[in-house]
Design a protein around this nucleic acid. Sequence first.
DNA 1: CGGCATCCTTCTGGATACTG
DNA 2: CAGTATCCAGAAGGATGCCG
Lengths: 110, 110
Amino acid sequence: MEEQDQKIKAVHDAMDILNGKWKISVISSICYHSSRRFSEILNDVKGISNKMLSKELKELEKNELVTRTVLDTQPITVEYKLTDYGQSLRTIIDHLSDWGMAHRKKSMYK
Amino acid sequence: MEEQDQKIKAVHDAMDILNGKWKISVISSICYHSSRRFSEILNDVKGISNKMLSKELKELEKNELVTRTVLDTQPITVEYKLTDYGQSLRTIIDHLSDWGMAHRKKSMYK
DNA sequence: CGGCATCCTTCTGGATACTG
DNA sequence: CAGTATCCAGAAGGATGCCG
């Protein structure tokens, strides 16, 4: 197999884990705050429902991108953090953020 | 609004354009070949159907990420290229590719 | 070759209500 | 607070066939 094919396949593999409408936004919410609670993420990611957030977080946890810690407060709080592995997406998130900003600027002049 | 919120929103804006299961893979197929025909992309992106590819390409064209050129051959050939704007995603694609490779390696030892 | 049209199934995801 | 459960509409997406 050629190098390009490998790369295209690798991109697809990456997107397989980062699938869904919200996954990347959820990750960025956590990563820009180092630690984040359920309700905070719900607020960060505009438009997401609790059901979807719950589902996305579970998948991220299964793929070892985030950790979930229940704090014994009253009422309970749950803290989500990125694993080191999840942190390795930081560069990509930053680039996407920059690109998104640039795009917004571009769209304004249309 | 705070800086983090801006960034999270920017990421979401970016993902709004790059939505769908296939968009990023399609872009990577084109960008790793500088120019690519319909049937070639169909082969590059494993699992995509012609219907989906057609739809994704249209959306990418509408968002000015790719250009579509019909060549007057017999039978006709259609060439897709990234615009400069589309090229600006190259860094992200490369990072995603690297990340995907690393992930595959990681998964192997589970 | 590069699609579009049609049919049909599966998945996505929103709204609302409820629980420990 | 941090979810789960249920219901349901609409979108995504696969298979197949047709066309210039």
